[in-house]
Simulated scan of single mutants.
Amino acid sequence: MLQLKGISKNFGGLHVLQDVNFNVAQGSIFGLIGPNGAGKTTIINLITGLLRPSSGDIQFNGQDLTSVQPHQITKLGIARTFQNIRIFKEMTLLENVIVGMHDHLNYGIAGILLNLASFKSAEAKSKARALELLSWVRLDHKAHMLADNLSYGEQRKLEFARALATEPKLLLLDEPVAGMNPAEKTELMAEIVNIKQRGFTIFMIEHDMRFVMELCEKIAVLNFGKIIAEGPPAEIRSDPAVIEAYLGKEDEAWE
């Protein structure tokens, strides 16, 4: 589904990424790991069009993304979450998710102002779909609550539901369990598996090794802007280059 071929990114004389290559298979959960400053978030920003590669190609379902605008990439079927949660805390959960549907709502300003039947129908459908997405992350019972009243873990799940409201084929997660306690991590892992089982492909970057190892089917390791290993969790866990470059020489780092 997603292919990066020879991707490099320079900021002036700083080489952030150098000849990065990897593939993400449709229907899989793919993880990208690496130390701080390795270039992981830069890769997500390149995939979503917020940055342009200095060289190389990014293909999504066979389409070149390197010159496509971010809003067009969203319409093609790519959505993301952010390391720092970005929800509208003064809005309800339902309203937050409906905001994510704006590209798919089929009514204009006239329909809203004149309260036309088309607007009423689309509004009812959007509310029903938003409730369905909230049920996927088990937040539908709080649909009319202000987002500001949610716990940190619930806010993260709300952000997932809003991303899914764009009807993506590929969901990019930027450190989804950052700041979570163990119970919240376990809950979120179950939600991600649930989302994957509904037909979505997931690409994540994450520092929690236990989370990545238990969840991802394939992992790529980025170090100083270069991919140093790629494969299933068992291979990554025992790869000497990964242990030395990323985790040090103590296997306890995986625990």
Rank of each mutant, 00 (worst) to 15 (best):
Gln18Asp: 13
Ala130Tyr: 02
Asp64Cys: 03
Gly6Thr: 08
Ala130Pro: 04
Gly179Phe: 05
Pro232Cys: 03
Phe224Asn: 08
Ser67Asn: 14
Val221Trp: 02
Ile7Pro: 00
Asp251Gln: 13
Ala128Arg: 09
Arg237Cys: 12
Ala110Cys: 10
Ile205Leu: 06
Ser121Gly: 04
Arg198Gly: 04
Met145Leu: 14
Glu167Asp: 15
Leu94Arg: 11
Gln197Gly: 15
Ile228Gly: 04
Met180Val: 07
Phe22Gly: 01
Met1Asp: 11
Asn23Thr: 12
His71Lys: 09
Leu93Arg: 05
Asn45Val: 03
Ala190Pro: 05
Val68His: 00
His15Cys: 12
Gly62Phe: 01
Pro240Trp: 09
Phe200Tyr: 15
Asp103Ile: 08
Asp174Glu: 06
Ala245Phe: 06
Thr92Asn: 03
Arg156Lys: 13
Asp140Asn: 05
Glu250Ser: 15
Thr201Ala: 00
Pro176Gln: 03
His71Val: 13
Asp19Trp: 02
Ile243Cys: 01
Leu134Thr: 12
Leu150Glu: 07
Glu206Asn: 13
Lys196Ile: 04
Arg156Tyr: 04
Ala190Phe: 03
Asn23Phe: 09
Ile44Met: 12
Lys40Glu: 02
Ser118Cys: 00
Ile33Cys: 07
Lys249Met: 14
Lys157Gly: 12
Gly62Tyr: 00
Asn194Glu: 14
Phe60Cys: 04
Met145Ile: 13
Glu191Lys: 14
Phe82Pro: 02
Leu4Trp: 05
Leu113Gly: 05
Ile243Phe: 00
Val221Leu: 04
His141Leu: 12
Ile228Pro: 05
Phe22Ser: 00
Leu131Gly: 15
Leu114Lys: 13
Arg210Asn: 14
Val193Pro: 00
His207Met: 06
Asp140Phe: 01
Pro176His: 04
Thr66Asp: 03
Glu230Phe: 08
Ala165Glu: 09
Ser67Leu: 11
Phe200Glu: 06
Ala128Trp: 00
Gly12Arg: 06
Leu215Gln: 05
Gln3Phe: 02
Leu172Met: 13
Leu76Phe: 05
Leu2Ser: 03
His207Ala: 12
Pro53Asp: 01
Asn23Glu: 14
His104Met: 07
Ala38Asn: 06
Lys218Arg: 13
Ile98Asp: 03
Glu167His: 15
Leu32Thr: 01
His141Phe: 14
Gly111Met: 07
His104Gly: 10
Ala110Ser: 15
Ile202Gln: 06
Leu51Lys: 09
Ala245Thr: 02
Leu93Met: 09
Ser8Ile: 04
Glu132Gly: 08
Leu146Pro: 13
Lys75Gln: 15
His71Arg: 12
Pro240Gln: 10
Ala124Gly: 11
Gln59His: 14
Phe119Trp: 15
Glu252Thr: 11
Glu132Ala: 10
Met101Thr: 05
Glu123Arg: 14
Asp174Ile: 04
Ala79Asn: 01
Ile228His: 02
Arg138Gln: 15
Lys9Tyr: 14
Met91Trp: 14
Gln72Pro: 11
Val68Pro: 01
